[in-house]
Design a protein around this nucleic acid. Structure first.
Lengths: 240, 240
DNA sequence: CGTGACACGTGAGAC
DNA sequence: TGTCTCACGTGTCAC
């Protein structure tokens, strides 16, 4: 019997090792080499024990690598009976393939990226040119185009709604796409004419940015992203 | 100097080996071990040469694997300074991640799959129920919903157009999505009332199926798919 | 016979 | 110090 119980003893194991039949691959000896290897009885000093622990550690290392290779082999179709190098070759192909597909899709769709961001744009700003004071506008209609990208989470929508409401803005249009635990949204926000009269445009945008960044930008982004590698996927929400 | 000139001598190399600095990884010895290893002059028989060629072959094998690992390392962000096992772990994560994203997208979009297929559906068929003979219809309007999925290629559209025209059908609506060298199309095809009078519905569908399968279903699918792994990506066409 | 693929134990360098 | 990783050469099985 193959003894690989020490395989995942301390290592940050990202993949599930199935305990039964760890490597479904040709030429895997089904004997424990440590029992097979006869160390001479006359040479049982600390050198021998060091050598033994060394070879055991090395076996653990090999097992870790091979375990990943075997999970990789399960992910790649028709990779059974493949060479190690050939397997890795098809993995390279698949990664490139999938990367190409996802970036291609990202171009045609409003797809979330890996970078948190919040942008705010004043759509009808050109009507204010020539006006010295920003708070005195010729036109009362205010439309803000807001786009954000961040990790998805259940409370996100209610937080956004509360934030938008608190600034007396209303959602004219929204396009939200969620993908792989990330979410990207583009909102068209309107300020009612009544409210628009009393508001300084600059501070409104500032406030909106602050509150949106508080919602969207994850604290210590890099750490969070590393921890939340494995996330669920779900279908995109689309509402108006 | 590292001598790995024999690295890609015959092997089906799917990834580009950059000749300079083949492995940007710690602990790569920069000496040629075959020159270092001194075989005893008194023992230059065929056993020695066999052993030598064996170890050289083994080195070639290791180099192939390591070359793939290094290309893999380039594909995975922040995988520099990673363990071999850790690198493979991230590769597993990335593959799962990308797979999840693409299947998720496939669900929300009319995205091509890896399986060639042609389906033909008679949209207003229910109006013919109760009619004994299929060639005598109460209604002259004929709408066929056709969907196909196959490898993309430049001549595909002209071939489709010619096929559709030859059956006196016209395109009422078309939704075509191309992704990763594969293409999926959904057509609504109309038969003009004049022509509809003279045509047997059954044989029309049969003919359409035959001609579409001739266009869409690749000959010896599996071989073709394996050969055309690396394909270009381009944005989807959408016309009506 | 050789050739290829794999697991193994070992020496060496890094921390 | 020990512990981890890597490249290496070897034994071995399969074709």
């Amino acid at each position: 019997m193959m003894d690989n119980s020490f395989c995942s003893e301390y290592w940050p194991q990202t993949t599930d090792l199935n305990q039964d039949s760890p490597f479904l691959h040709p030429q895997v000896p089904n004997i424990n080499s440590f029992q097979l290897h006869n160390y001479p009885e006359s040479f049982q000093g600390e050198t021998a024990s060091a050598s033994r622990s060394h070879s055991e550690a090395e076996k653990r290392r090999r097992d870790r690598i091979n375990a990943q290779l075997s999970t990789l082999r399960k992910l790649i179709p028709t990779s059974e009976k493949m060479d190690k190098a050939a397997l890795l070759g098809s993995v390279v192909d698949h990664v490139k393939d999938l990367k190409g597909k996802t970036t291609e899709i990202s171009k045609m769709l409003n797809t979330p990226t890996d970078i948190d961001e919040v942008t705010i744009e004043h759509l009808n700003e050109e009507e204010n040119k020539g006006s010295a004071s920003e708070s005195k506008r010729k036109d009362n209609s205010v439309i803000l185009k807001v786009s954000f990208c961040c990790d998805d989470r259940p409370e996100l929508f209610s937080e956004l709604q509360r934030a938008i409401k608190s600034l007396k803005l209303t959602v004219a249009e929204a396009d939200i796409t969620s993908l792989g635990g990330r979410i990207k949204g583009i909102f068209l926000l309107c300020l009612s004419e009544n409210s628009a009269k009393d508001v300084c445009m600059h501070s409104l945008k500032q406030s909106l940015r602050v509150v949106l960044c508080g919602i969207a930008i994850s604290p210590s982004t890099s750490n969070y992203r590393i921890k939340s590698k494995r996330q669920r996927f779900f279908l995109p929400a689309q509402f108006s």
